[in-house]
Amino acid sequence: MNLDEQLKAALNLEAEMVQTPIPDTQHVIKGGQDRRRRRNAMWAGGGVAAALVLVAGLFGITQLDGDSDSAPYVTVTPTGSVSPSVTPSEPLTFPGQDAPNREVDPGTYRLAVGQRLDTSSIEADLTVARQGWIGQDLPTFEARNQYGGAGAQQINFLPGKADHCGPVDASWEAARRTAATNVRTLADQFARLPNGTVLQPITDTRAFGRDALHLRMRIHDDCDPAAGTSYIVSESTRGALYIGYKEVSAQDVIVDLLFIDVDGTPVVAFYWHQQGVDPALVAEVTSARDSITFVPATE
């Protein structure tokens, strides 16, 4: 008997030997109903963003397609002319570091983005439409072992050429560059990220109801996952933005960035995804990024 046959026999025997508990079908159904209810509730709660998506649809705005690095950039500009069909509930919060691996339900989540000059918090609401998001301040989306993400961040530092691989340690800190405090210079800094290739140069646009700059980069992430390192695109007071969810060394990641000024503070709203991923994943992270609404200072 060779090992293949032995394995087959051993697994079948082990499976037969294990004591099978009695199913609690009602518990399963209740769990399923709760999942469905949570999902529906989140959709209702995301009314404002859903309305924006509707506006985008009405105006014929299309999603960026999967892997087309040269696809035209399309921004969704909130018009404020469409009222949500339901009263939005309070935004949710991502579990963050308390449960960084927890998958969150679809819905609208409030992100801590940074701090204004007057030290008040900059926050933004982001809507995720599908299952598959992992809850963090810089949320990550996964589908079938392909990764992407979206969010908004006030940048403090960018990686330096000497060490762009996380974690943030003494070596990374020694190499890092301090982020510019105006939008255009910050965009220029991003355009010079280590291992970066500019796919779409910095252009003026409108986003989130504001003047904005758009930049799309391809980053070659050559950090070693076996050593626990991943490329860090940027660092803020809220943490570092890693783009290296992978199991193999070396990959290319597309990072799409919108630079805006929030009451005098430059902020980057972004999505990223591994190159070559399913177009549905790209659509999901694009939609999430474009759903962002910044919370007014007075709120």
């Binding site: 082990e14 499976a15 294990v18 508990p21 518990h27 399963v28 159904i29 109903q33 999942r35 469905r36």
Partner: peptide, 26 residues
């Protein structure tokens, strides 16, 4: 039985099967 072989633990198998069936219900 499949969940048990995948997880190598009766407890983890029950958890995995429960959550999978909840998703299947949806």
């Amino acid at each position: 039985r499949l969940a048990y072989l995948l997880t190598a633990s009766p407890t983890a198998a029950e958890d995995l099967l429960q959550s999978t069936l909840e998703k299947a219900y949806v």
